[in-house]
Structures are given as C-alpha cells and as structure tokens.
C-alpha cells in the first residue's frame, strides 16, 4: 500500500465525515460525495500496486488489477444515481419548507421533553 494514497483516502473520509455531521443538507450531500470518492479510491488501492491499464494487447508488462476497477466503477455509478436522488430530495424539501436544514424528529422531541419533564 502506498502511504500517500492511504493518507489521501483518510483525508477524504475525514472531510466527508466532518460534512456529514452538519445540519445543512447540502453539506451532508457533499460529505457523502467525498466519502464516496474516498471509498472508490480505497477500492482501487485494494488491488495492490499500480500498473498498465488492464487491456489485453499481447505485451508482458504487468497490468493493474482490473477487478477493483470494475467494482469501483459500479460503485461510482451507484453513488452517482443515489446522489442525484438525494439532491432531488433536498430540492423537494426546499420547495416544501424553504429551508436547507435537516429538522429533528417531532415525535422524538416530544418524548424527550416528557422524559425530562417528569424527572
């Protein structure tokens, strides 16, 4: 494992996690996207050392592991589709409430107040 790349993955995860912990939905989506980048890069790195593109052309040079590439490609596309959906959800939320923040659950808050009120 190349340390620089592992560090890059770690950086992406850290930044993504930080954004995910926010209340603004836009930031949360950005966080998920960053985490997605980190995960895809990690997947690729899992294949081991870098090499020539895995295209069979008769040469003997070592090629990079194609399996993680295929897996990462699948993951990228899936993340893309779901990010698009999440953006649509954010947009819908904006249309309904004109707010970008993720609210707390109403019923949960009611019970939390009950719990505090009686104690």
């Amino acid at each position: 494992m190349i340390v620089v790349l592992a560090l890059a993955v770690g950086g992406l995860y850290a930044a993504g996690a930080f954004l995910l912990l926010q209340r603004s939905l836009t930031r949360i989506i950005l966080g998920i996207a960053l985490l997605g980048h980190g995960a895809n890069l990690l997947l690729l790195l899992a294949g081991g050392a870098s090499g020539r593109a895995p295209i069979v052309d008769g040469s003997d040079q070592a090629v990079s592991d194609p399996l993680p590439q295929a897996l990462a490609l699948t993951a990228i596309v899936i993340t893309f589709g779901l990010t698009a959906f999440l953006l649509a959800l954010a947009y819908r939320s904006w249309l309904l409430r004109h707010d970008d923040e993720v609210e707390d659950d109403v019923e949960d808050r009611r019970i939390a107040r009950l719990g505090r009120g009686k104690s």
Binding site: L20, L71, T79, L82, V102
Partner: peptide
Amino acid sequence: QVRSGMTYVVVSLLASTLFITAVALVYA
C-alpha cells in the same frame, strides 16, 4: 416523508459507503 426520508437515506448511504470500505479492506 421528506424529512424522515432524509434521515433514512443519509444513514443508509453512510452505511453503504462503509460497506464499500469494508469490501475494499476485505479485498485488500
């Protein structure tokens, strides 16, 4: 629905990312 959908989707997507992470580490 949109509000609770947010919670659901965000948590699930986080879980999915962690799943990919786990797959990558397993493959590594």
